[in-house]
Design a protein around this nucleic acid. Structure first.
Lengths: 351, 351
DNA sequence: TTTAATTGTGCAAACGCTTGCAAGTCCGAC
DNA sequence: GTCGGACTTGCAAGCGTTTGCACAATTAAA
């Protein structure tokens, strides 16, 4: 019965009521900032609550129809600087808004996201942020039909106009490619992300567009498939390095793969950037800690997290807001020049 | 009133009761696996629940005195491979045990941990895992007096015998130092962690002990203060490099600082490990992604997380267990040889 | 001064579940 | 065939809030 916890000494709204000499409903209203509570009463209540060290019981509040001030977050996992940065932003903004965070990880058990979404929307959360690249659309439909507040991060949902936040993937890749071209590179290997993910496709398209716009012929042989994780970057780079003539630059669809590529390149006895340039995408914290420091396209990950939270809270706190449906925020990427890209080697200038 | 969510279509225990033709209390008991429910009844109930898609309402359950199956986790922040790894382990084990995770970050607002602990123990969590190096003891006392289940990770609590899990910090540092000595190093710079943290002290002691045991004179000038973050590693290494004669190896109290040190060393035009060896501590994922790959002392971080969860769940589910108070689990560290340490340069052999 | 309007406050019901207690069912043994 | 007990099940109370509704208090108007 006594769950080995709290129960014993809990200060309830009743205690506060007794202490301040008003009814418990008045206490509730005073505490929740209703405007038609008399100033004097409110002060009395607040003082009593303070004195008694009253803390609202979330479970009860939520049972009774109030908000829990809990936001759910569904991610594949934390083992990925990329998500870690977004989560930082989320965390920051959530704290600022005085909400709490419930973390759910799918741990890449593809297909089980449905379960999670179900669990979350039946759980205490007031709303949910989804950073789940491979999510299927039907789950969103369910969420939507339940009028459950949610926001998508870095995930396209063309039909449904879900609230979402992402970055300029196409433009970022375009800029990076152009940068390499401007450095004289003509054979630029490209390591893709998972093809099922829209942003991976956008980056590839940005790369192709930049090539086309600058009169560089697109060569299918310079494309290698990756999955956004380091080992695939290693493997992809190995493949790319076999291409004759060898590419003078490698553009990976994210930093993790870029690091794998760097390793592969070094393992071939090649120097970065003297022999070959490497470009990443994301700008995760490690990007500036590897050697040479990685030149990359910065996604404002932390900011994306923050925006996601504000979009979500807006929904939660103003459920009727007609603006709600349409919001999509796309933040700008920016090229961060560091050390891993250089002008094309002189021996290669001819091409 | 209708919080723009669920309420409308919620399947409650009453619906299941109606569907299966028993009383709601029987449903509750069947669902909670009480053993004195008749097999046939249980099956009927389970079938009905399944059919209706019943999902328990956590808030209500917890209000009524049941468990929420939510575990709270308090960390300084996620921006630190070290904690990230522990969290992975926690997450894994929590999922396995069918609990959910509530994440709280203090965001290094020292002194506000009390607030958090208060909030958490008043929140829905059944128990809490603390990875908060600088936590003051009084909070623990409070937790303990409320009989709130908790576990400490990597944090000593000598007086109170809180349940805790940590690693062999002293031994790890000892082994690492011995390894460097065996490579011929005699001037081994040491970058400390925050002195307020016990494990930092233990590592320093391990270093000193190894020196003493192998007849290497301890030199205060080879100790530089750090705070566990990369920039402090950079600064500390800079200081160490000014020491005459220059150290031939640097042992940082964690990997993050080791990486800062590597950068500082490179900025001096020195080669790792040819000119100077670098040793880390923790073995965060990035350790194997930097170049040269970092030789370091591996803490079984993920496992520490897992153990913490199991210790906690044990408390939650068996509150009366007399074993409870005394549990402390210390896991073994292990030296991971990679590329950043080499034999002392020949020019230095004399010393 | 009385009455109507305007606030402010209290009561009670609900939210969905757990659980102590009482009552019912079933069985074998006498 | 009846009785005692072992199992099962149902009832009702309660967990701490929120909130609709009614009532009390206060103020303004008549």
């Amino acid at each position: 019965m006594d769950s080995s916890r709290k129960k014993s000494t809990r200060v309830t709204i009743l205690d506060v009521a007794r202490e301040s000499g008003v009814s418990y409903s008045t206490v509730s209203r005073a505490l929740n900032g209703f405007d038609f509570v008399k100033g004097a009463t409110r002060d009395k209540v607040l003082a009593a609550a303070e004195k008694l060290g009253y803390v609202a019981n979330i479970q009860a509040r939520s049972l009774a129809g109030g908000r829990t001030r809990i936001i759910g977050l569904l991610v594949p996992g934390l083992d990925n600087g990329y998500i870690g940065e977004i989560v930082r932003g989320i965390d920051e903004e959530i704290a600022k808004s005085n909400y709490d965070l419930m973390l759910y990880t799918t741990r890449r058990r593809v297909g089980r996201e449905a379960m999670y979404i179900d669990a979350i929307s039946n759980g205490p959360s007031d709303g949910i942020i989804l950073i789940v690249p491979l999510l299927e659309r039907e789950y969103l439909t369910a969420l939507r039909e339940h009028h459950f507040a949610y926001v998508l991060v870095d995930q396209i949902d063309p039909q449904m106009h879900s609230p979402m936040v992402d970055a300029t993937n196409w433009q970022g890749a375009y800029d990076a490619t152009k940068y390499l071209i401007d450095l004289g590179h003509r054979r630029i290997g490209f390591i893709t992300g998972l093809r099922a993910i829209q942003s991976a496709l956008d980056r590839l398209d940005g790369y192709k567009a930049a090539l086309a716009d600058h009169g560089v012929r697109f060569d299918e042989g310079l494309i290698a498939e990756g999955d956004f994780f380091t080992p695939s970057g290693y493997a992809a780079a190995q493949k790319l390095l076999k291409h004759k003539p060898r590419p003078t630059a490698v553009f990976a669809s994210n930093d993790l793969m870029a690091m794998g590529a760097m390793q592969a390149i070094r393992d071939q006895g090649l120097e970065i950037p003297a022999d070959i340039s490497v470009m990443g995408f994301d700008d995760i914290p490690q990007a500036s800690m590897v050697h040479p420091q990685l030149t990359t396209v910065r996604q404002p990950l932390e900011q994306m997290g923050r925006v996601a939270v504000s979009l979500l809270i807006e929904q939660i706190e103003r459920p009727e807001n007609p603006e709600r449906a349409a919001r999509r925020v796309t933040l700008a990427t920016r090229l961060i020049e560091r050390e891993s890209c250089a002008a094309v080697p002189t021996s290669d200038k001819k091409s």
